[in-house]
Write a protein that binds this DNA or RNA. Structure first.
Lengths: 155, 155
DNA sequence: TTATTATTGCAAATGATTTGCGATAATACT
DNA sequence: AGTATTATCGCAAATCATTTGCAATAATAA
């Protein structure tokens, strides 16, 4: 979604320089959970950590695998909550959903050979005039490119 | 997919002006099936007709509903074949696949209120330079816009 | 018409995601 | 801290979309 959904939270305790980029991010999300009345639990912490440390979008199963959670429903429920909070976004490929933390919106390219998922900026991709002209109000979009990445192309 | 996949077949029997735009299209597809060694059967005819007369992309279930076929596997198998032939294309939304005949490539916009699916041209949407610069070879893409259509917006 | 074999239809298997519910633990309150 | 309140978890079972095995059927070739 190009419309920035994440609620920018001014955490007043910005002391100590974050050791890992991720920790600050994770804490921000946990803070948001509290503010929104959600309880901060172990499964939520681990799922958020799994998402924050992931280098690319992950499926629910992959996220479960990155945590000690064996129950799928917990993973799905948590992802659903995070999505409602605008913390993560989702896109589908071949019938399975991929999730990732929303930083700034971007689209995806997936290599049909190695499965690698690349991020690509989408500034240029506002709602097409065709739609706006027809009275549409676009709230989000997602684009997926399929092809072969440079590495795989180089054999 | 922007890359035109449909194999342009020069049907030498272009007599009789098509009464309905669809019939010519259906015949072309049936012809392609024959040429590729597929048998022309009732289920295939009906599925192709369902696709050719559909005003917008349809799910496998919807396509089954538009025919007298009660068996889902037949529908899925046929759609898979048509996809391999480059006759139809597929995109996913909320975990379900939508299919439609390939005319010229376009992307889609789905109204979150009434569910209507609109087509939008995609000429301007080649592979982003970000990707090509990184050595990617893009073979196809799909974009889905979500929002509210003019009709629904007008209450 | 008959033989050959692609296709169908059905049942059952998958795989992803969802839901009901009792057990558990996170916050609120004293 | 101790307890009540109730969100959340974990598990089992339910859905849903899609796939697969296989024997019965029907489209083409001979």
């Amino acid at each position: 979604m190009c419309a920035q959904k994440i609620k920018q939270k001014e955490t007043n305790h910005s002391h100590h320089t974050a050791h890992h980029t991720h920790h600050g991010e994770e804490d921000e999300i946990l803070q948001l959970l509290r503010e929104e009345g959600y309880r901060v639990t172990a499964p939520r912490r681990s799922i958020i950590e799994a998402l924050a440390t992931a280098a690319s979008p992950k499926t629910a199963k992959q996220i479960g695998g990155r945590t000690k959670i064996k129950d799928a429903s917990t993973v799905y429920r948590t992802l659903e909550e995070l999505k409602k909070l605008g913390v993560i976004e989702e896109f589908q490929s071949k019938g399975v959903a991929y999730f990732e933390i929303v930083h700034d919106h971007h689209d995806h390219a997936i290599c049909e050979v190695c499965g690698k998922i690349e991020h690509i900026p989408c500034e240029a991709m506002k709602a097409p005039r065709t739609l706006t002209r027809a009275g549409w109000t676009i709230t989000s979009h997602e684009a997926l490119y399929r092809g072969v990445c440079g590495t795989c192309a180089a054999k």
